[in-house]
């Protein structure tokens, strides 16, 4: 592990792993369920593991299984995956603002790991974040996702039904745990999250979930920027505090 050789790098990496543990925990039931459904959809253990290894996108992987089950064609499954995951474009763009600048290769590497959960944990971290921190959060989550996909394929049917039902809530609990502390800090954040929640609940009736989340997020982020511009939070108009990291 070359990470250990640089002391600051390994500390930050370790911090990322620690913060990512809650994601790894939340992924356990999600991945076990995915693996189990994959097995009932007649995917082999190799196919199940390969999908988790190469795609690393919970919602899209579930959706692919349900499409495979009803005999949908390859192009349609791939296109649906694209629609479901296009929201990560927005998340990466936002993360790019917060992350330290680094070599494009390193950024291209952790870009693979920008799931909803990895994005949520890294973007709620105070201050700017380094690539090693993001790698820490990403890798512990990724390992959990892949390993427990395999576990689910092998022994998923052994999980008690009552526990399965309640464990589907794990990732929502994680999102709530990430959001709650910020709600106490700024009134603006209550409106940002609340408006996006209401808009998403409306849009989801009208369009695919992928588009709905994106539209709700963008509209809410734009409206609140005009109602309460970020630059007004700082003493000077040109907000040097926000430029510090560059």
């Amino acid at each position: 592990m070359k990470v250990i050789s640089t002391s600051t790098g390994s500390n930050v990496f370790g911090e990322g792993v620690k913060d990512g543990t809650s994601i790894a925990l939340g992924y356990m039931p999600a991945a076990i369920t995915f693996g189990f459904i994959a097995q009932t959809t007649n995917l082999s253990i190799q196919e199940t593991l390969l999908m988790s290894l190469l795609v690393f996108a919970g919602a899209a992987q579930y959706m692919a299984l349900s499409l495979l089950a009803v005999g949908t064609g390859a192009l349609e499954i791939i296109f649906t995956t694209f629609i479901v995951n296009i929201r990560h474009f927005l998340m990466s763009a936002s993360l790019n603002e917060k992350a330290h600048s680094d070599s494009l290769l390193k950024k291209a590497g952790y870009a693979f790991g920008v799931t909803d959960e990895v994005f949520a944990v890294t973007s709620m971290k105070q201050g700017n974040i380094s690539s090693m921190y993001i790698y820490g959060v990403f890798l512990i989550s990724y390992i959990s996702w892949v390993v427990f996909s395999g576990v689910g394929h092998t022994v998923g049917e052994l999980l008690p039904a009552t526990l399965q039902q309640s464990m589907t809530f794990a990732l929502y609990a994680l999102f709530i745990a990430l959001l709650a502390p910020s709600l106490k800090k700024h009134r603006k954040i209550i409106f940002l999250a609340g408006l996006a929640a209401v808009l998403n609940s409306l849009f989801i009736q009208l369009m695919a979930e992928g588009w709905s989340i994106i539209l709700a997020t963008i509209i809410s982020a734009i409206i609140l920027e005009f109602v309460e511009p970020a630059s007004q939070k700082y003493t000077t108009a040109e907000s040097p505090a926000r430029k510090e990291k560059r």
């Binding site: 790019n96 996006a196 989340i213 630059s231």
Partner: peptide, 22 residues
């Protein structure tokens, strides 16, 4: 700066949409 402000709002808005109505 306006785009930067919008991108800084995204995480909180995204969390709202990821939690509700799911």
């Amino acid at each position: 700066p306006t785009l930067e402000g919008i991108l800084q709002n995204v995480p909180y808005a995204a969390l709202g949409a990821l939690i509700f109505p799911g």
